[in-house]
Nucleic acid binder design. Sequence first.
DNA 1: ACTAATAATAGTAACCATTACTATTTAAAT
DNA 2: ATTTAAATAGTAATGGTTACTATTATTAGT
Lengths: 120, 120
Amino acid sequence: MRFSKQRELIKNIVQGTNSHPTAYWIFNKAKKKISNISLGTVYRNLNKLNKDGIIDIFYDNNIARYDWNTVSHDHLKCNKCGKIIDVKMHTKELQKEVWKQYKFEADNFEITVSGICNNH
Amino acid sequence: MRFSKQRELIKNIVQGTNSHPTAYWIFNKAKKKISNISLGTVYRNLNKLNKDGIIDIFYDNNIARYDWNTVSHDHLKCNKCGKIIDVKMHTKELQKEVWKQYKFEADNFEITVSGICNNH
DNA sequence: ACTAATAATAGTAACCATTACTATTTAAAT
DNA sequence: ATTTAAATAGTAATGGTTACTATTATTAGT
């Protein structure tokens, strides 16, 4: 993969926020530095960075969100303010349990808990 | 809500399968009984049935799937055959744990475990 | 049963998030 | 410097879903 200032910027934007941004949010932020950057470039690079394990993608209902945190983790989503909080909930024990109970070889957990966060 | 044979058919289709179908799959199945049924009608009624608590919606990556099982439950998704299996994994204990650790009032859990099912 | 009121429909257009295409630009190896 | 191919901007196309509108059909009141 060759260097590009667009990709570098996009990577820095994702790595500089805890807000689990959408592609469009990243696009708007990027435009402040590179005014003619294109939305396609943002998507292409987000996918590329994800394939290389540099950033994470997850889906919040039907829209993609991007995360600098590539260590397997879970999310708490507040129904009042929309905030998404990183947490670690699933364990090796849960993985073993899934095998024991269902003979299912788990390799990825997607857990999103919605409710009300401690700001309310 | 007034009776309609379209909605009745859509409800029966969802309640008659364990395959966690998409709207488009339901649309095609419905066309065999009502050949000129429209995709908009399918979506409108799926949303209506969901709001009334008759069926469930969940998102498999970025596409909606519909489920007759309205009791809170989780999913195992096989990466080999695409099969989605209903399971019950989250517990009252987990809810309490989320409160204890994060002071987060959980009211909904979305858990999807991907991996390899026992057919492989 | 008949009629009036209005919910639901079919068909189509619009929408939004994302991907694909293409001519041009740019990084970097020679 | 020149060459080669990766990356880009800009735009068109796609896929899933929702919105719009004229028409049809259910149901409540006579």
